[in-house]
Design a protein around this nucleic acid. Structure first.
Length: 228
DNA sequence: TCATTAAATTGTT
DNA sequence: AACAATTTAATGA
Protein backbone atom coordinates (compact mmCIF):
# COMPACT_ATOMS: atom_id res chain seq x y z
CA UNK A 1 0.00 0.00 0.00
CA UNK A 2 1.29 3.43 -0.93
CA UNK A 3 0.93 6.52 1.19
CA UNK A 4 -2.65 7.75 0.95
CA UNK A 5 -3.29 11.02 -0.85
CA UNK A 6 -5.86 13.17 0.93
CA UNK A 7 -5.08 16.80 0.22
CA UNK A 8 -4.50 19.04 -2.76
CA UNK A 9 -0.89 19.48 -1.67
CA UNK A 10 -0.33 15.74 -1.68
CA UNK A 11 -1.98 15.40 -5.09
CA UNK A 12 0.31 18.10 -6.48
CA UNK A 13 3.30 16.39 -4.89
CA UNK A 14 2.32 13.16 -6.60
CA UNK A 15 1.73 14.77 -10.00
CA UNK A 16 4.52 14.77 -12.52
CA UNK A 17 4.02 18.27 -13.89
CA UNK A 18 4.68 20.08 -10.59
CA UNK A 19 8.34 19.14 -10.21
CA UNK A 20 9.84 22.20 -11.81
CA UNK A 21 7.40 24.84 -10.57
CA UNK A 22 8.68 27.87 -8.70
CA UNK A 23 7.35 28.52 -5.22
CA UNK A 24 5.24 31.38 -6.59
CA UNK A 25 3.71 29.24 -9.32
CA UNK A 26 3.00 26.48 -6.86
CA UNK A 27 1.40 28.91 -4.41
CA UNK A 28 -0.86 30.38 -7.08
CA UNK A 29 -2.03 26.90 -8.14
CA UNK A 30 -2.76 25.89 -4.56
CA UNK A 31 -4.65 29.12 -3.97
CA UNK A 32 -6.83 28.91 -7.07
CA UNK A 33 -7.56 25.22 -7.22
CA UNK A 34 -10.71 24.14 -5.38
CA UNK A 35 -11.17 20.77 -3.70
CA UNK A 36 -14.58 19.12 -3.60
CA UNK A 37 -15.84 15.79 -2.27
CA UNK A 38 -18.50 13.79 -4.09
CA UNK A 39 -20.39 10.68 -2.97
CA UNK A 40 -20.35 7.35 -4.75
CA UNK A 41 -22.60 7.46 -7.79
CA UNK A 42 -22.66 11.25 -7.93
CA UNK A 43 -22.41 12.99 -11.26
CA UNK A 44 -19.34 15.25 -11.41
CA UNK A 45 -20.25 16.85 -14.69
CA UNK A 46 -22.54 16.07 -17.58
CA UNK A 47 -22.23 15.93 -21.29
CA UNK A 48 -22.88 19.39 -22.71
CA UNK A 49 -21.70 21.35 -19.67
CA UNK A 50 -19.35 24.22 -20.43
CA UNK A 51 -15.80 23.32 -19.45
CA UNK A 52 -14.53 25.63 -16.73
CA UNK A 53 -11.80 23.58 -15.09
CA UNK A 54 -9.11 21.01 -15.44
CA UNK A 55 -9.98 18.27 -12.97
CA UNK A 56 -7.65 16.14 -10.84
CA UNK A 57 -8.49 13.13 -8.72
CA UNK A 58 -7.12 13.45 -5.19
CA UNK A 59 -8.44 10.03 -4.26
CA UNK A 60 -11.20 7.76 -5.45
CA UNK A 61 -12.28 6.70 -8.92
CA UNK A 62 -14.46 8.21 -11.63
CA UNK A 63 -15.59 6.98 -15.01
CA UNK A 64 -16.08 8.72 -18.30
CA UNK A 65 -19.32 7.42 -19.59
CA UNK A 66 -21.90 8.02 -22.24
CA UNK A 67 -25.57 7.14 -22.29
CA UNK A 68 -27.32 6.36 -25.54
CA UNK A 69 -30.78 7.78 -26.28
CA UNK A 70 -32.19 4.33 -25.48
CA UNK A 71 -30.61 4.46 -22.03
CA UNK A 72 -27.75 2.03 -22.63
CA UNK A 73 -24.57 3.07 -20.89
CA UNK A 74 -20.99 2.61 -22.06
CA UNK A 75 -17.91 3.49 -20.08
CA UNK A 76 -14.92 4.66 -22.06
CA UNK A 77 -12.35 4.74 -19.34
CA UNK A 78 -11.80 5.06 -15.64
CA UNK A 79 -9.71 7.82 -14.13
CA UNK A 80 -8.00 6.93 -10.88
CA UNK A 81 -6.31 8.74 -8.02
CA UNK A 82 -3.50 11.02 -9.19
CA UNK A 83 -5.01 11.45 -12.63
CA UNK A 84 -5.99 14.68 -14.35
CA UNK A 85 -8.52 14.97 -17.15
CA UNK A 86 -10.45 17.41 -19.30
CA UNK A 87 -7.46 19.08 -20.99
CA UNK A 88 -8.80 18.06 -24.39
CA UNK A 89 -12.04 19.98 -24.01
CA UNK A 90 -10.20 22.92 -22.40
CA UNK A 91 -7.76 23.19 -25.29
CA UNK A 92 -10.49 23.01 -27.89
CA UNK A 93 -12.80 25.30 -25.94
CA UNK A 94 -15.64 22.84 -26.21
CA UNK A 95 -18.41 21.63 -23.98
CA UNK A 96 -17.89 18.32 -22.18
CA UNK A 97 -18.28 15.33 -24.39
CA UNK A 98 -18.97 12.75 -21.69
CA UNK A 99 -20.62 12.36 -18.33
CA UNK A 100 -18.21 12.04 -15.44
CA UNK A 101 -19.57 9.86 -12.64
CA UNK A 102 -17.91 8.95 -9.35
CA UNK A 103 -17.63 5.20 -8.79
CA UNK A 104 -16.57 5.62 -5.17
CA UNK A 105 -16.57 8.47 -2.72
CA UNK A 106 -14.09 10.70 -4.48
CA UNK A 107 -12.19 13.91 -3.75
CA UNK A 108 -11.65 16.13 -6.76
CA UNK A 109 -9.48 19.17 -7.46
CA UNK A 110 -10.84 21.81 -9.86
CA UNK A 111 -8.22 24.00 -11.46
CA UNK A 112 -9.92 27.03 -13.08
CA UNK A 113 -9.57 27.44 -16.81
CA UNK A 114 -7.66 30.71 -16.33
CA UNK A 115 -5.05 28.98 -14.17
CA UNK A 116 -4.72 26.18 -16.68
CA UNK A 117 -4.18 28.64 -19.52
CA UNK A 118 -1.68 30.63 -17.48
CA UNK A 119 0.36 27.47 -16.89
CA UNK A 120 0.10 26.65 -20.57
CA UNK A 121 1.50 30.04 -21.47
CA UNK A 122 4.29 30.18 -18.93
CA UNK A 123 5.54 26.73 -18.00
CA UNK A 124 7.38 24.48 -20.40
CA UNK A 125 7.31 21.45 -18.10
CA UNK A 126 3.54 21.75 -17.95
CA UNK A 127 3.32 21.72 -21.73
CA UNK A 128 5.56 18.70 -21.87
CA UNK A 129 3.40 16.93 -19.32
CA UNK A 130 0.29 17.58 -21.41
CA UNK A 131 2.03 16.21 -24.50
CA UNK A 132 3.01 13.07 -22.64
CA UNK A 133 -0.46 12.69 -21.16
CA UNK A 134 -2.23 13.18 -24.49
CA UNK A 135 0.15 10.73 -26.11
CA UNK A 136 -0.39 8.22 -23.33
CA UNK A 137 -4.15 8.48 -23.67
CA UNK A 138 -3.93 8.08 -27.42
CA UNK A 139 -1.88 4.93 -26.91
CA UNK A 140 -4.44 3.76 -24.40
CA UNK A 141 -7.30 4.23 -26.86
CA UNK A 142 -5.44 2.51 -29.68
CA UNK A 143 -4.68 -0.39 -27.37
CA UNK A 144 -8.34 -0.47 -26.35
CA UNK A 145 -9.58 -0.77 -29.93
CA UNK A 146 -6.98 -3.42 -30.69
CA UNK A 147 -7.83 -5.33 -27.54
CA UNK A 148 -11.55 -5.27 -28.15
CA UNK A 149 -11.23 -6.44 -31.71
CA UNK A 150 -8.55 -9.05 -31.36
CA UNK A 151 -8.54 -10.52 -27.90
CA UNK A 152 -10.80 -12.83 -25.94
CA UNK A 153 -12.82 -11.61 -22.95
CA UNK A 154 -10.34 -12.71 -20.28
CA UNK A 155 -7.64 -10.58 -21.85
CA UNK A 156 -10.01 -7.64 -22.37
CA UNK A 157 -10.81 -7.63 -18.68
CA UNK A 158 -7.13 -7.92 -17.79
CA UNK A 159 -6.19 -4.95 -19.98
CA UNK A 160 -9.05 -2.79 -18.80
CA UNK A 161 -7.97 -3.27 -15.21
CA UNK A 162 -4.31 -2.71 -16.07
CA UNK A 163 -5.25 0.57 -17.79
CA UNK A 164 -6.42 1.89 -14.41
CA UNK A 165 -2.86 1.51 -13.14
CA UNK A 166 -1.06 3.47 -15.82
CA UNK A 167 1.84 5.07 -13.91
CA UNK A 168 2.05 8.01 -16.32
CA UNK A 169 -1.62 8.92 -16.09
CA UNK A 170 -2.26 7.94 -12.48
CA UNK A 171 1.01 8.00 -10.52
CA UNK A 172 -0.69 7.99 -7.12
CA UNK A 173 -2.70 4.80 -7.68
CA UNK A 174 -2.62 2.29 -4.85
CA UNK A 175 -2.62 -1.43 -5.62
CA UNK A 176 -6.13 -1.93 -4.30
CA UNK A 177 -9.22 -0.67 -6.12
CA UNK A 178 -12.80 -0.61 -4.99
CA UNK A 179 -14.81 -1.30 -8.12
CA UNK A 180 -17.68 -3.71 -8.56
CA UNK A 181 -17.55 -6.43 -11.18
CA UNK A 182 -20.49 -4.75 -12.86
CA UNK A 183 -18.43 -1.59 -13.36
CA UNK A 184 -15.50 -3.59 -14.69
CA UNK A 185 -18.01 -4.98 -17.16
CA UNK A 186 -18.94 -1.49 -18.37
CA UNK A 187 -15.25 -0.62 -18.52
CA UNK A 188 -14.20 -3.62 -20.58
CA UNK A 189 -17.34 -4.13 -22.60
CA UNK A 190 -18.21 -7.62 -21.38
CA UNK A 191 -21.10 -8.89 -19.28
CA UNK A 192 -20.88 -8.96 -15.53
CA UNK A 193 -21.01 -12.76 -15.53
CA UNK A 194 -18.09 -12.89 -17.91
CA UNK A 195 -16.15 -10.46 -15.74
CA UNK A 196 -16.70 -12.74 -12.78
CA UNK A 197 -15.38 -15.70 -14.76
CA UNK A 198 -12.43 -13.73 -16.11
CA UNK A 199 -11.45 -12.43 -12.67
CA UNK A 200 -11.14 -15.94 -11.36
CA UNK A 201 -9.01 -16.95 -14.33
CA UNK A 202 -6.75 -13.99 -13.58
CA UNK A 203 -6.73 -14.82 -9.89
CA UNK A 204 -5.63 -18.40 -10.44
CA UNK A 205 -2.94 -17.07 -12.77
CA UNK A 206 -1.66 -15.14 -9.74
CA UNK A 207 -2.16 -11.72 -11.33
CA UNK A 208 -4.68 -10.28 -8.89
CA UNK A 209 -6.80 -11.05 -5.88
CA UNK A 210 -10.60 -10.92 -6.02
CA UNK A 211 -12.21 -9.20 -3.06
CA UNK A 212 -15.72 -8.22 -2.13
CA UNK A 213 -16.50 -5.01 -3.97
CA UNK A 214 -13.02 -4.70 -5.40
CA UNK A 215 -9.68 -6.30 -6.14
CA UNK A 216 -5.95 -6.06 -5.48
CA UNK A 217 -3.26 -6.10 -8.13
CA UNK A 218 -0.47 -8.62 -7.65
CA UNK A 219 1.25 -8.56 -11.03
CA UNK A 220 0.59 -5.49 -13.17
CA UNK A 221 2.98 -6.49 -15.94
CA UNK A 222 1.32 -9.87 -16.12
CA UNK A 223 -2.07 -8.23 -16.56
CA UNK A 224 -0.74 -6.03 -19.36
CA UNK A 225 0.73 -8.98 -21.20
CA UNK A 226 -2.10 -11.39 -20.55
CA UNK A 227 -3.24 -13.12 -23.70
CA UNK A 228 -0.24 -12.27 -25.87
C1' DT B 1 -21.48 -3.83 21.51
C1' DC B 2 -24.46 -7.01 19.51
C1' DA B 3 -28.36 -8.78 16.81
C1' DT B 4 -31.51 -7.95 13.07
C1' DT B 5 -32.61 -6.20 8.60
C1' DA B 6 -31.91 -4.14 4.22
C1' DA B 7 -29.05 -3.29 0.35
C1' DA B 8 -25.27 -4.30 -2.57
C1' DT B 9 -22.39 -7.55 -4.72
C1' DT B 10 -20.94 -11.99 -6.04
C1' DG B 11 -21.34 -16.71 -7.85
C1' DT B 12 -23.95 -19.95 -10.54
C1' DT B 13 -27.30 -21.68 -13.84
C1' DA C 1 -31.52 -12.85 -17.53
C1' DA C 2 -32.79 -14.83 -13.23
C1' DC C 3 -31.83 -16.68 -8.76
C1' DA C 4 -29.40 -17.90 -4.51
C1' DA C 5 -25.55 -17.02 -1.48
C1' DT C 6 -22.55 -13.86 0.65
C1' DT C 7 -20.80 -9.45 2.44
C1' DT C 8 -21.39 -4.96 4.01
C1' DA C 9 -23.95 -1.07 5.96
C1' DA C 10 -27.61 0.63 8.77
C1' DT C 11 -30.61 0.42 12.56
C1' DG C 12 -32.03 0.05 17.19
C1' DA C 13 -31.91 -2.12 21.64
Amino acid sequence: MQTPVNTLTELLDASLWTKSLSAEQRARIEAETVVKDVAAGACVCRKGDPVESWIGIVHGLVKMTSVSPEGKTTTFLGVAGGGWFGEGSLLKDQTRKYDIVALRATRLAFMPKATFEWLLDTDIAFNRFLLVQLNERLAQFIAMVETQRLLEPDARVARSIAALFNPVLYPAMASQVQISQEEIGYLSGVSRQRVNQALHVLESAGLLKVEYGGLSILDLEGLRRFGT
